[in-house]
Design a protein around this nucleic acid. Structure first.
Lengths: 225, 225
DNA sequence: ACACTTATAGTCTTTTTGACTATTACTTGT
DNA sequence: ACAAGTAATAGTCAAAAAGACTATAAGTGT
């Protein structure tokens, strides 16, 4: 009974990565129907684990990435989404700083790699739809909640933060207004330090204020961008 | 193969109703483990229908309600959520004007009835959690998208609309400010008519402007309440 | 010392909130 | 007929936020 899989229910993970630009983690299947194709990391659920646990286990198995907070996206369940038999999949997503992770192909994956969001290969099944849905969700989320600590280095400049928003939302923001708004909500602490090794005026470094961050997550945080 | 059920995957529906106050539709099970208890309308998915189709079929079967736009909420999949065996459930929700529907118990339901959101009986399994999650989702939704046409009579007063928001969000709003904001976004069309049979000054009647409604749904609509 | 690049400060105007006050219209009880 | 009650609607005013800018500062590299 334990360890047995529910063979009509799977998990797929959309892992967004960011450093410099927005990326997505894909794996190349080493076996199965779509062998040799890049796809979202996914797998089967066993009887003795919750959906959330399954998502984490599968992601780890395929890519070596561990201990992420994966958020459930949606269950995809059209009749013909998977060839050969009826499979409903529950999709999860998250956003991390990809440079923090050493991605290695594991288990039935022959390869695992980051792809720029603007350069995604053809995906099998309904993975294209899942990815699009996840990106829309991410955009929405990012306007409602402050962007996580884990996405930038401990100390970062306002421009780095702005670039982060700009690449996720794919829009241009006004620099002075962005800085006014960000500084206005007291989320950032001035480190009293500057960048170095830059060939122009060095920017101040900031870090997140953890308490304000938590309370903004739970209360109001609205960006109209 | 056809008509066969996926016996580890179910659907549960949270149907919010509104006329005067916010309600939830529950059914009383006629058989099964929690016979005699009020619960969310739910059932099994067959192999030849999508999740969305299953949700509609099941709701209709149990309550006679048909042709709703049910939105997927989330899959609930902790290991012990259902006794006796492992079942993952995909929850759906929607909000309707309950007085438009004739609810009748059907199939394996011995009864179907609306309950005030503030007076919900004990629910089996994790239905309490699902309901709470659905309500939170509803509150969030209602702030991001204009409230649907189908929730009020064709012609309605501003106070009726305000009451709708107040009961869903469970907050008090300032009448003049509410009217200013609502009228300001051009969503309402003045019918040039007034209520009658009221024992006080009659209010103007309005109706929704369908075009503005559609574009507000797709673009921006932010209420900070 | 000048060009170039990015940071940062500041201005000004328009919109949007939030908290109110005032007035109007109609009904009902006396 | 008049007052009291109740809800509709109009309007005010100050504070806050958004948007579109301009100006200046602080570095580099030549």
């Amino acid at each position: 009974m334990e360890q047995q899989i529910m063979d009509d229910l799977s998990i797929d993970c959309v892992i967004f990565g960011f450093t410099d630009e927005l990326k997505v983690l894909l794996v190349k299947h080493a076996e199965g129907i779509s062998k040799g194709k890049w796809a979202l990391p996914g797998g089967w659920i066993t009887y003795d684990e919750s959906l959330d646990q399954a998502a984490n286990r599968i992601l780890n198995l395929l890519t070596g990435v561990d201990n992420l907070f994966l958020e459930q996206l949606k269950a995809f369940g059209s009749v013909e989404r998977f060839p050969s038999k009826r499979v409903v999949t529950v999709a999860y997503y998250t956003l991390i700083r990809d440079s923090d992770y050493d991605v290695v192909a594991g288990f039935t994956a022959s390869d695992a790699q980051w792809f720029s969001i603007n350069d995604i290969p053809d995906l099998p099944y309904d993975h294209q739809e899942i990815l699009q849905y996840a990106w829309d969700q991410l955009k929405h989320k990012v306007k409602q909640e402050p962007i996580g600590f884990n996405l930038l280095p401990k100390k970062f400049t306002l421009l780095q933060l702005q670039n982060l928003y700009e690449s996720i939302l794919q829009i241009k923001l006004d620099k002075p207004n962005f800085r006014r708004k960000m500084l206005g909500m007291k989320l950032l602490i001035d480190c009293d330090e500057k960048q170095d090794n830059v060939s122009h005026r060095a920017a101040k470094l900031y870090r997140f204020n953890e308490e304000v961050y938590q309370s903004l997550k739970e209360h109001k945080f609205v960006l109209d961008w």
